[in-house]
Design a binder for these strands. Structure first.
Lengths: 337, 337
DNA sequence: GTCTGGCCTGTAAACGATTACAAGAACGAT
DNA sequence: ATCGTTCTTGTAATCGTTTACAGGCCAGAC
C-alpha cells in the first residue's frame, strides 16, 4: 500500500483534487470543505509530494550551501547563520561539500540547473573565469561568500582581510613584537592572496619587514603542522628558545593550531617566546590551548548577510548585484601577551 | 529565455522526445541519432530537470544525512565516510541538521515522505517510541547510526560504548591510575546512558569505585567547561595540585577538551596530575593540547557501514534489518601518561 | 423577474521528464 | 516475393501536483 495521492484524498473526501489542493495551500474555502479535506488527509495520512509540487510551481523551497571543507570550523559558524535565516523564510537548507577542486565547484553550479534548489550560497577557495561564468549563467540565484572581482556582477559578501591583517599586526606591535612572521595557506586561493597582500601592507604601515613567511598546502591543521618547519628553519633560528621571529600571524585558525603544536614540539612557548594570531575566530580558537587570539572575519554575519542577499534576489531577480563587506574585529586570547 | 526542455532539444535535433531521452540515458541508439541529439544538447545547453525526472522515476538519487550538531567534529568524520560511499554509488549526499529536540527529528523523518531523498541516515541523540514509529513507517529506507532497541526492527550501526569504556579504564589502570572520574553528557540521551553504564561496569571489573561523576548539559565544549566545577568541587578537592581523582574519562572529545581547560585554570596538569581520556577520536583529539588520548568508536566505519546498509536496503526493501556493531580501539596520545 | 457580480467548486491543462506500446524499416530465410 | 524477426523510432500516457478557466449558485439591485 503506497502513499496516498491527492486524488485519493479527493475521492475520500468527496471533493475535487483542486479543492484539496486549495485547502492544503490555505486558499479560501468554506468551513465545511476545509473540514472534510482535513479529515480525509488525517485518515489517509496524506503527505504532499515535494517532487510533484516543485515540478509544477518551479520552486523547491530548498537552498543549498556549498563549502569546500566541512572539517573547517569556520564553516560551522557560517552554516548555522545561513540556516537560521533561510529557515525563518520557510526554506530548508541542504549542505553539500565541493572538495578542493575548482572543477567540482563549476560542476556544482552548473548542476543547479537541474533544479535541486532555488538558490545557492557558495564559498569558493579558488575563483577563475569558468566559475564566474557558470555563476553568471546559473539558472538559480547564486551568492558568493568570498571575494570575486566587482566586474563579475554577482552578489557577494566578503570579509575584509587587509583590515583584519592590520588588526592582527597592530595588536602584535602594541604588545611589543617586531619580528613578525606569516603562515599563509595556498597562495593560489582567493583568501591566500588577499591575506598575503594584507600582511605585507600591514607590516609596511609599521615600517617592518616580514620575519619569515611560509605557505601551507591547504587551510588545514595538518598542512599547518607540515609547513611549520619551513617557518622555523627557513629563516635560520639561532637556538632553542629563540628564533628569527617573536610572533606569527596565521591565515586561519586551523593553521595556527597546527603551528602551535610544532612550536611546542621544539620547545618554544606561546605566547612568551612566540605570539600567535589566527584568523576566523572559529570555535577552535577557544578550544585550543593556549586559547588563540584570532581575527574575527565575521563568518556568522557573512553567513547571515549572504542568506539575506540570496532571499532578496529570489524575490527580485532584476536587482543590481550588491557587494557587502563585513568588517573584522579582534578577539584577544591567550596566545598573545 | 528560459531553460530548454527536452521537447526543444527534440525539435532542434529533428527527432522525438523519446529518442532524446533514450540517448541521454544511454539506451541503444544509432550512431547518427546519438550524434544529432548530443549536438542539439550542446548547442542549447540543455540540462535535464531533476524534479521532473524524479517525479517520473520515483527516485531522486539524493540521500540525506541528519546529524544533531554540525559543530561536533565526530560528525565530520562520519559525514566524509558516508559521502564517499554514496557518491561512489551515484547518489548526492545532502546534510541537514536536526537540532537537539527529538520532535525535530520525528518531523524530519516524517518529512521524508515528501520525497526529498531516497533514503536517510540519522544519528539521533535521544530515541523514543515516536521516533521509532516514524522510522518504521517512513516511506523511504532509514538507517540509524546509533543505538535503538533490537525489537524496533530497523537497520542500525552502532558503537560499542561499554567496550570502549573498558578500553579507556584498562588503559588508565595500566598507567597506574586508580581514582578515576567520569564526565558524562546528558544522561537522558542514548550515548549518555550507554556510557554511564559502561563506565560503571568497567570500573567494577577492576574493583574500583568512581572517584567523581558529573553530567554536562550537552555533548559540547561549553557544557564540558561548565560541568568541570561539579567534578572538581563535588568531591572535595584537598588542595591545588591534588584532587579527589587522578584521571577522568569523558563521554566525548568536546567534553574532554572543555574539561582540560578548566583543569588548567585551577592549576592541574594533564597528564601529570590528571590523565584525561576522550571518546570519538575526532580531529579535535589531535588538535588540542596536550593531544587527547581518545577511544575511537569507529565513526568513519560506522558512517561507511551505515551508508552501505542504506544502499543495500534501497536495492532490496524486504531484507531483514541488520544490526551492526563496530568495535572500538584506543588512540593513545599526550593526555595520558 | 431578470440581470449582475461575487463566491465556490470542478474540469482539465499544464510542469518536464520516462517508458509502454505500436509502427516502420531493414534484413535474411523460406 | 512473402513472411517473420529484430532493431530503431515516434506517439502518447503517466508521475502528483497546481492553477487557469468556466460553470453553478446565491444574493442583491433594478
Amino acid at each position: 500500500m503506497s502513499r496516498p495521492t491527492i486524488a485519493e484524498v479527493a475521492r475520500a473526501a468527496g471533493v475535487s483534487v483542486a479543492s484539496v489542493s486549495r485547502v492544503l495551500n490555505g486558499l479560501p474555502a468554506t468551513e465545511e470543505m476545509a473540514e472534510r479535506v482535513q479529515r480525509a488527509v488525517g485518515e489517509l495520512g496524506y503527505v504532499p509530494d515535494a517532487r510533484a509540487r516543485s515540478l509544477k510551481v518551479g520552486r523547491t523551497f530548498q537552498l543549498t550551501l556549498a563549502v569546500a571543507d566541512v572539517g573547517n570550523p569556520v564553516y560551522v559558524t557560517m552554516m548555522r547563520a545561513v540556516e537560521s535565516v533561510v529557515a525563518a523564510a520557510g526554506y530548508r537548507l541542504v549542505v553539500t561539500t565541493t572538495g578542493p577542486e575548482i572543477v567540482d565547484e563549476v560542476a556544482l553550479v552548473r548542476g543547479m540547473a537541474r533544479g535541486y534548489a532555488d538558490g545557492l550560497v557558495i564559498s569558493p577557495l579558488r575563483v577563475d573565469e569558468d566559475l564566474i561564468k557558470s555563476i553568471r549563467e546559473c539558472e538559480v540565484p547564486v551568492v558568493v561568500a568570498g571575494n570575486v572581482p566587482a566586474k563579475a556582477g554577482v552578489d557577494t559578501v566578503r570579509a575584509n582581510s587587509p583590515k583584519g591583517m592590520l588588526l592582527a599586526v597592530d595588536h602584535l606591535v602594541s604588545r611589543g613584537r617586531r619580528r613578525i612572521a606569516f603562515l599563509n595557506g595556498p597562495a593560489d586561493t582567493v583568501p591566500g592572496t588577499a591575506r598575503a597582500k594584507g600582511f605585507a601592507d600591514a607590516l609596511k604601515t609599521h615600517g617592518l619587514e616580514p620575519a619569515a613567511v611560509a605557505e601551507a598546502a591547504d587551510f588545514t591543521f595538518t598542512a599547518g603542522r607540515a609547513a611549520a618547519p619551513e617557518l622555523l628553519e627557513g629563516r635560520g633560528r639561532t637556538g632553542s628558545g629563540s628564533s628569527a621571529f617573536d610572533a606569527v600571524v596565521c591565515a586561519n585558525d586551523l593553521l595556527a593550531v597546527g603551528l602551535m603544536h610544532e612550536l611546542a614540539a621544539v620547545g618554544l612557548l606561546v605566547p612568551a617566546d612566540v605570539a600567535v594570531v589566527g584568523m576566523d575566530d572559529s570555535e577552535l580558537a577557544e578550544q585550543c590551548f593556549p586559547t588563540l587570539t584570532s581575527v574575527n572575519l565575521g563568518s556568522a554575519e557573512r553567513g547571515r548577510r549572504a542568506a539575506e542577499l540570496l532571499l532578496a534576489r529570489i524575490e527580485d531577480s532584476t536587482r543590481t548585484p550588491r557587494r557587502i563587506v563585513v568588517q573584522p574585529a579582534l578577539s584577544v586570547r591567550g596566545s598573545t601577551p
